[in-house]
Amino acid sequence: MSENFNIDDVSNLASIELSEDEKAKLQKDLQIILEHVEALKNVDIKDEKIDIHPLSKVLELRKDESKESLKHEDAMMNSPETKDGHFVVPPSIE
C-alpha cells in the first residue's frame, strides 16, 4: 500500500499544487490513515451487492420540462473574470 503511494501523482490527479513541506506532512498523515484502513482486508465481502442509496431507493426520473434558469446576471455574479457574457479563464490550450 504505502510504498505505492506517490503524493506527486495523487496531487496531480487532484489538481492541487503542494509545497515540499505540505507534501511531507500530508504523506505522513495519509500513511497513518491508510495503515488504519488496512483492517478492512479482514472482512469477508464476497457477493455483497452495492446500492448507491443507503436505503436502497431506486432512481426516479424527471419529466422532460424546461423551467426558468438563472438570470444571466446571477449566473455571472461570482465570475472572477467576464467578457461579453462569457466566463474568462487563462488559455486552456497551449
Binding site: 467578457k83 462569457h86 474568462v88 487563462p90 490550450i93
Partner: peptide, 9 residues
C-alpha cells in the same frame, strides 16, 4: 496555438 484567454459558455 497562441490563445491569450479562453471564453466559456
Amino acid at each position: 496555438d497562441s490563445a491569450i484567454s479562453t471564453l466559456l459558455d
